[in-house]
Every structure is written in C-alpha cells, then in structure tokens.
Design a binder for these strands. Structure first.
Lengths: 301, 301
DNA sequence: CCCGATTGTCGCCAATTTGTAGACAGAGAC
DNA sequence: GTCTCTGTCTACAAATTGGCGACAATCGGG
C-alpha cells in the first residue's frame, strides 16, 4: 500500500467533496481513488468519510485525519524543497529536441508556462524528426513519439498519444465510408513512414486484430502533411489525435472506423544516462508529465 | 514509488549507518533498501548518503532530510493513533483458533508479549487441526497453515513456513542417505495427511520438479508425531522447519535432500468478512506479522 | 414525473512495480 | 592473505496497481 498516495487521494476527496473530482484533479480513475481511500480506512480500522451515491464528506475521524494529513503532506513538500533548493536555483541552458509536429502544436505553447515558472532558465528547442542521440548530439533531453519503447536509452514515458483513422467528408462521399479495417484495401491511404516498405496498419476491434497493408498513395514522415492531404480529400489517414483534433472539430475531417483502434503511440523523454538527472531536466520532465500526462478528459468517463 | 517506504528505509539507514542493518530491522532485503534510497535520491535529484562499501552516512542534504523525515513519520504515526484511539482502547475478548502444533510451539510463547502490550484484552485460544469456519464457529480469527491460498475466505498472509526433508542419523545409517527425490521410493516415508490417498511430495531442484509418491508407512495429520517417529528412526519425514528445528539442532534429526525443496506452506490469518476488521483483530494480525513475518535470520544473508 | 448524466463501488485483468536471490567487487577484521 | 560482510545490480517470479466496464443510486433539467 502506498500510504502517501492514499493520503493524497483522501485529502483531495475531502477538499472537493467528490471521488470523481478528486480523480480528475489527481489524474486517476474513480475506482483508483475509491480503492485508495478504502485502503486507508482499512489500515486505520476506521471510517473516514460518509458517502452517498453522489457526495462524500468527512466524519469526525475524517476531519481530524484530513487536517493532520494536510500538515504532513505540506511538510513533505517542504522537506523535498529544502534539499532540492540547497542546490542552485535552476538556471542555465536546457537543450531540448522534439519532433516537428508535436513541437509546434503542443510543446511550443506549453513552454511559455514552463518559462514563467522557471524564469532563470534558458531553453533551446530544436525541432526535427531525425532520431537523435542525446549524448552525441548535445541535448539535455529529447522527446520522441514512438509505438514501441526503446530500451537502449533511458526514457521516461510522458503520455500515450492516441491515433485516429480519418478522411474528409468529400472523400467519403465520393468513395464511401469504410466500416471495417479490411475495407481500407479499397481506399487510398496516406501513410506515415521513412521508408516505402513494411508499413502496415494494425487495427483492433471486438473481432480481434487486423493487419492491413494499405493501398498507399502517399508515404511521408510528417503527420501534419498527412492531415492536410486528407483534408483535401486525397485519402484516408491514420494520424495522432493531437494533429487531427482541430480539423475533426471543424468538420474538415471525419473520424471513421470508430469501433477499431490503432495502438497508441507514446510520448517519451529520452536523456543521457547519468546517476542523477540534473535538476533542470527533471523539472522539465515533471512539467511535461503534469501538462501532457493523463489528459483530464480521460478521467471520470 | 512508495515514498513513505522510501522515507522509512532512508531514515533507518541513517539511524543505523548501514543498509544491511536497516534491512534487518525493516525486514527487507539489502537490495530493496538500496533501491528505496536510490529512488528517493532520484526523485529529489540529490545525493543524500555518502557510501563506502561498508558504511553509509548522510551528507548535508541527507542530514537535513533525515531530520525532517523523522518529524513527518512521527506525525503520521500520531495522526493514525489519533483516529484509531477515538475508538475505545482495545479490550474484551479475542477468540483465536490455531493449529495444534503451531499453537503450542510458536504461538503460545508469543502470546505473552501480545498480552503485555494489550493488557486490557482477554484471549481465548482454541487449538485444533479441524478446518473451522470463523463466522460459524464463533472465532474472531483463525490461523491456518496451508500450501495454497484459499480464496473463499478473507485471509491475510502472515509468513511462509518452509519445510524440510529429514530422518534420524540411525535411520540413515541403516538405510542409506537419499541424494535425489527419486531415491525416496526406496525409503519409508512418514507422511502428513487426513486421508490415505493422493499424498504426493513435490520436490524441486536444479533439474526441475519431482512428484514423488512416497512409500509411506505412517500417515497422520500432526507433524509433531511425524517428527517424533522420525527421531525414533522409523522413516523419512517432510515437515515444517519450526517443528523439526530443535531436533535438527540437537542432531536427533538430519536434514537431507538439501539441494531440493518443497513448496513452503503459508501461515494465514482468516477472519470474517466485515467492512473493517475490528481493532482487536487488526492489532492481533499486525502483531503476528511483526512477530512471525519475514524472520530476521532471512535478512542480509 | 421521467430521463439522462454523473456518482461511488466492485470484479476482472493487463500492465507495472516490488522485492528477493544471487553475482560481483570492495572494505575491514583477523 | 583470507574470510566475511558490505552495497549495487540484474533477472525474474510474485504481488500490486490502476483502468475498464457494469451496476445501482442520486440529482437536476425538461
């Protein structure tokens, strides 16, 4: 039992009056929050919360424990701060490499907040889609979006990046809407890749996995280009949701094959193997996890 | 990461100056303690301890953090005590059922300490080897030693109970010493069981698992009897170490087949399914885990 | 008053973490 | 010089975590 996690969950439930809201703020599922609090009550042997089906409020035990928990949690933060601040305030240059699309669409806007939080730091951001070696190419941290975790470098998972199959309404009107992955064989696919071979789409549904060799007419290593070509009605694309999102919302693209899903990509931070991350890198990675990790709209559904 | 576990491990290392000793006191392996402290240092981004290959001492960061960690840990204990003591001081009757051998050899002596710690409690101990239903038979908690976990009742594991194959020196002189489980077929086995069928010994070694149908001459549901008959030279017995221990130490029994091992039994506490354990039962079970869980001599070897 | 949305709990299970065994190299005691 | 004990590391089995989805209950809007 991770008692600290239980304490945080409990405190957040008392603060918000709700397991669901506590879950959203802690980026945990309702069932995880429920289990944490139940576990804490079990270990103490007392009930801490009165629950109805829509609210939770502390009883006498719970109010007492909540007050003490807040003190403990804040003292722990203070202890952590005390030792990390014995080092210099984070300053100096942080050299970041990130993929082009992610860098422009998601990371760039977020960096303003990071810079606000750590005004003494200088950031150098290099956007490229080349595979870089952080040690050799002189970066402190490089971000990557990939399907499989590379175990040859030290990497920290930030967040899954779901993908979506989509096409423009005009394309669908002219060519019909695929209802099953196998229908894709009859459609023009816009596919992502560096090389022109070995690119299959894996889609999974209630009837199992489907490996589709799409009839591709465009193969490019930039998903924004795929999106834009899809918007122009040139075919069906499988691209990350963060790239497709705005076009989907505006109706310029339509998600299809919604009963099937592709394995999500994962955003990783990769950094040189040293005994301890520098404070700069660690703060940056923590910031990424906080900002991009477990999106709020994934909770409580 | 269980930060509280890390804090406790770290604090214990600083107190004792040693990962090994911290492990012994916390009933963790050396590598677990090492990992906990490393993980804490990683999360803080600072080194807390200076290590030689035989000692560990806090550096400036470590000393500061240690002092704060002690405050936090003691406040957490105080918070826990505050809510649990809002209930009555544990008093009243605690009805315990335990197996005969374990009850007489291990549990009985330990109960004195439990009674010292909780003088307001009354204990009723019923030793029997029957399978009892705690709800139906009116016990607050029943202890069981079994090979497989029963999932039909709520049970808390207390500790593994290793078994040993042994015989008297006299028996071995007369019949030779088995060196492989298959040799047991040529020996007289004293076997544990309620019924006279289906009793196989499973012994595992470097060359895999061996299921032996022993040529048993005695089948009894009490391992003390098996021990005593083995001491008298009547055969080979597979019995729990806590039963054989004294006879082994005194040379009246000799452990054999030491490159093979039987799956250990496990001591469980079984109790009625209620939302929360009563304080009495919880204190008793915690006491058992503390007393019998992860034996000290299993640490740091 | 009814219906839809949201709630908290629970069982199941895949994914992840835990924690040990054992190997290794280093330090200290004898 | 040897032996014992140390702390770290890897591999891996066992245990735990945390989400999904089902379920029953509640609340607010129409």
């Amino acid at each position: 039992m991770d008692k600290l996690a239980c304490l945080k969950a409990f405190a957040k439930v008392v603060e918000t009056g709700s397991f669901s809201e506590a879950g959203r703020q802690l980026r945990l599922s309702r069932s995880a929050v429920s289990k944490y609090v139940a576990e804490l009550e079990e270990s103490l042997g007392v009930q801490l919360l009165n629950r109805t089906t829509r609210h939770a409020s502390p009883n006498e035990n719970g109010q007492l424990y909540f007050e003490r928990a807040l003190v403990i949690l804040s003292e722990l933060d203070a202890a952590d701060q005390a030792v990390t601040h014995l080092q210099s305030t984070p300053r100096g240059l942080l050299r970041i490499n990130a993929p082009m699309s992610f860098g422009t669409i998601r990371l760039g806007p977020a960096l303003a907040d990071f810079m606000t939080r750590y005004p003494e730091m200088q950031l150098q951001l290099v956007l490229s889609d080349d595979l870089v070696d952080p040690v050799q190419d002189g970066f402190d941290v490089t971000l990557r979006i990939a399907e499989l975790e590379s175990s040859s470098l030290i990497a920290r998972k930030i967040t899954p990046m779901p993908r979506v199959v989509c096409a423009s309404p005009d394309y669908l009107k002219r060519h019909g809407t695929p209802h099953h992955p196998q229908d894709l064989r009859d459609h023009v696919s816009l596919t992502y890749g560096f090389l022109l071979t070995g690119n299959q789409w894996k889609l999974t549904g209630a009837d199992g996995e489907h490996w589709i060799q799409p009839a591709w007419s465009l193969c490019v290593n930039n998903a924004e280009v795929l999106r834009d070509v899809a918007v122009k009605g040139r075919g069906v694309a499988l691209i990350p949701e963060f790239i497709a999102g705005e076009a989907l919302q505006q109706g310029r693209l339509k998600a299809i094959l919604n009963d099937f899903w592709a394995p999500p990509l994962t955003l990783y931070a990769v950094y040189p193997p040293t005994r301890h991350l520098s404070v700069k890198v660690r703060l940056f990675i923590d910031f990424l996890v906080e900002r991009f990790g477990r999106e709020v709209d994934k909770r409580g559904n």
